[in-house]
């Protein structure tokens, strides 16, 4: 299960809406071992594409090093699908490289609603998980 604050959900959805029709992507970092997403880090989609995303390699290097220095991990890795449902594609599955992360997908295909779903992707196997949205982590 992914437990995430409403504020972070709103930020991820706003980023996806802002970049539509291109795919938006980013990370929410949290303390190592906590499984608690805390620090919102929108990333540039180096592909600037409606059907593909890739973190810019230098930005990723800086962000990953910063997380390392702060003893954080990428608790959530998110991206948007802009014309299809919020379910991992074959491409998403084959490139998934953080076995401990929650892979969040949002879909901006509809103007009226933005589905927000979360998955574990380990060794090519996708498992959808419940998303619990809380007002604060208390």
């Amino acid at each position: 299960m992914l437990t995430i604050s409403r504020e972070l959900v709103d930020k991820i959805v706003a980023h996806a809406r802002a970049d539509h029709p291109d795919e938006a992507c980013g990370v929410v970092a949290g303390p190592a071992g906590s499984d608690r997403p805390e620090r919102f880090i929108p990333m540039e989609n180096a592909e600037r594409s409606p059907t593909f995303y890739r973190f810019d390699s230098m930005e990723q290097f800086r962000v990953w090093r910063e997380m390392d220095e702060r003893d954080e991990v990428p608790v959530v890795i998110y991206h948007s699908h802009t014309a299809t449902e919020a379910y991992p594609s074959r491409t998403d599955i084959s490139y998934a490289s953080e076995p401990d992360a929650h892979y969040v997908l949002v879909s901006t295909a509809s103007e009226d609603e933005t589905p927000f779903r979360s998955y574990r992707i380990v060794d090519g196997v996708v498992t959808e998980e419940e998303v619990k949205i809380v007002e604060s982590y208390g």
Binding site: E23, V27, M43, R65, H79, S97
Partner: peptide, 12 residues
């Protein structure tokens, strides 16, 4: 030397 898997994917 640092190795990082690219974070990538998409609807395609």
């Amino acid at each position: 030397v640092t190795v990082l898997p690219a974070v990538a994917g998409g609807a395609r």
